[in-house]
Nucleic acid binder design. Structure first.
Lengths: 216, 216
DNA sequence: CGCAAGTTATTTGTATACATTTCTGCGAAG
DNA sequence: CTTCGCAGAAATGTATACAAATAACTTGCG
């Protein structure tokens, strides 16, 4: 693995997991010293972060971690709805129905399991499996690419709201509904189920958002 | 302006205007010699092109200009429809109605003008004005960002179909319809008008696509 | 004659030195 | 006391040298 990739991954994780707060200055020399590589790979990594929108370039002062406000979260979900609904429609028109039927069942059993114990880790794994399967079934590189960059931002936003067992249970049901709609080949139902899920998701985040502590 | 920006712009233009065919190898040393700068800014420019999707990185052989097939064009328009319809909806809900009414009129006069003479250049300027105004009215940074990268690819695709006076005339009418729908604050009509326009656009490209000459 | 392994040669990846721009702090003038 | 401007310092932008990896060629063997 290239050093620039390692630096990029490291910084990306630090940003989406809120170890680097918005407004933090990412100076090239400072980061290269911290991570033990020269400025060149650091510079490359910072350029990628700026391209992703996780940082914004300032003239003369390097890159700073980008801000996230309530408005940003709402804007993000508008884009997310447009992209994921379209993906769901395309997936519903694909020939991978059987796979999604299986996934729907797994979500239902996961829901039952979530009633008993908090299996958070495995559940998130299942969600990303569904995401990837929809991506694959939609079979559109440009859409997948747009979703990939979007999901980086979503990871960061997700940390704003604390995990909540009840919400996870609801979420499992919503995901099962999406998978079932795709499995039965109903594009508009799949899109509607996605809209419902995203609406609930956004609602949860906006009401359960923790104050973003800022380092003064 | 930074040297890396100049290199990026130069290469981007060369790719979207088909002076660099798909599959062309963009070697760092070769490009740095051609453009009279060192490898560092060239390398940065190539990374940006890869991030945009205009080039794909190959290990050991540098970056090559990405391919565009019929499938890619269709995929591109699926994403375009999702994004531009959403933008049009948001714009229709904004308070910039009067601006769009004015723009609608300009499209109608442009249509009359296009019947008399081929004012291609000014017309494309008008189209991009509408795009920018919709972007501004939608007021969503993530959506704008996604559209910006999308439009780079669209510029490239547009060169596949030769300019055609009749199509331009139809296009002017379709754009006027979009602007009117936004001006009158009707989100779903605006989205529908956008869908119609994009459908016609894609149809035109697919039927009038010129064979992409490949340098052997 | 074909295949494979070793070798060479080219290309990318990284480090570092230098140039240029920009921020910051101090001082003087208004 | 505020504001403008200059000088120093520190950061980014660029060039180049070196290291590592990979592709292509050559040569030897089956």
């Amino acid at each position: 693995m290239k050093a620039s990739d390692k630096v990029y991954e490291s910084l990306r994780r630090d940003i989406v997991e809120w170890r680097l707060s918005p407004g933090t200055v990412l100076a090239e020399v400072e980061q290269s010293a911290r991570l033990g590589v020269s400025r060149t790979p650091v510079r490359e990594a910072l350029a990628r972060l700026v391209a992703d929108g996780l940082a914004v370039q300032q003239r003369g002062r390097g890159a700073i971690v980008s801000e996230i406000s309530d408005t940003h979260v709402e804007d993000l979900f508008v884009l997310r709805r447009a992209l994921e609904c379209e993906s769901a429609r395309l997936a519903a028109r694909s020939t991978h129905g059987a796979d999604f039927a299986l996934l729907a069942q797994r979500f239902e059993t996961a829901a039952q399991q979530l009633r008993a114990e908090a299996a958070t880790e495995g559940y998130y794994q299942l969600v990303s499996e569904l995401d990837e399967m929809i991506d694959g079934a939609a079979n559109n590189t440009y859409l997948s690419s747009a979703l990939r960059t979007l999901r980086v931002h979503l990871q960061r936003v997700r940390r704003l709201a604390k995990d909540n067992p009840e919400r996870l249970l609801e979420s499992a049901g919503e995901h099962a509904a999406i998978a079932r709609a795709i499995a039965s080949g109903k594009p508009e139902v799949a899109a509607a189920a996605t809209t419902v899920h995203l609406h609930q998701s956004l609602e949860h985040i906006m009401t359960h958002a923790v104050a973003t502590e800022r380092t003064p």
